[in-house]
Amino acid sequence: MGGAVIARSPTQEALQRLRRDRMAVAGAMLLFCAALVSVLAPVLAPQDPTQTNLAQRLAPIGTPGYPLGSDELGRDILSRLIWGGRVSLLVGFGAVIVAMGFGVIVGLMAGYFGGWLDSVIMRLIDVLMAFPAILLAIAIVASLGPGLRNAMLAISIVGIPYYARIIRGSVLSLRELEFIQAARIIGAPDLRILTRHVLPNCLSPLIVAATLDVGWMIMAAAGLSFLGLGAQPPTAEWGVMLSAGRQFIRIAPHLSVLPGAAILLVVLALNFLGDGLRDALDPRLRQ
């Protein structure tokens, strides 16, 4: 029987490699669970996350009616963690999408067209990068006013250079390759070349970068909320919960430990998955 040669696409190959990476699989599963819980928050949360009960403040884990205890205003911590996850994941992914959107557009233009446009765009990007990321985010929120949406916008802006540089680097090497030259010679318009030929070939580094970046964004958003610049009361958000709980760390450590652990787990899962994706997509590892 002739051995049938099954041709596998690069994507299938990458997926297979990813499936063999146990850490990445664990990360993906954890993320899937977190996403599921967030989506189902209205159904899963036992209580309204803003329902206060001053007579039941700082209840310990396992109190009847409060499986994970209650916070400084007697709100159910489990419900707040569930709803807070929704906010944190939304902000994390939302900020990455916004940053990636802008970063990809300017990175493509800078890399593909080169010349003065490249110089102008990359100098602006350098300006953004000259500031420590979180400091720049704080400055942006300070000028826009505190709030979750502004915090998300701020960390998005801060994230743009990361994507712009990744894309520009890939484009610079791609645009000299034969298939791009060929497309240009047969007269394909720039937009078509960029979207059909250049962008798809930059996707793997982009996916890896974005996965790792969601974790950073979640932490940055939680950090801004911790400083009082992000989510405002009574919104449940992990950074806010951590910050508010700090005041009660001696008598009710679960107030800050639980949201802290939630941030840790999600960010860790994203990092495992990101590392796994990088290994799976890295062409140098291909046999």
Partner: peptide, 12 residues
């Protein structure tokens, strides 16, 4: 902040 959040919940 804590006191105001409690008041906010009562007013709501």
């Amino acid at each position: 902040v804590l006191m105001s959040t409690a008041i906010q919940a009562d007013l709501k």
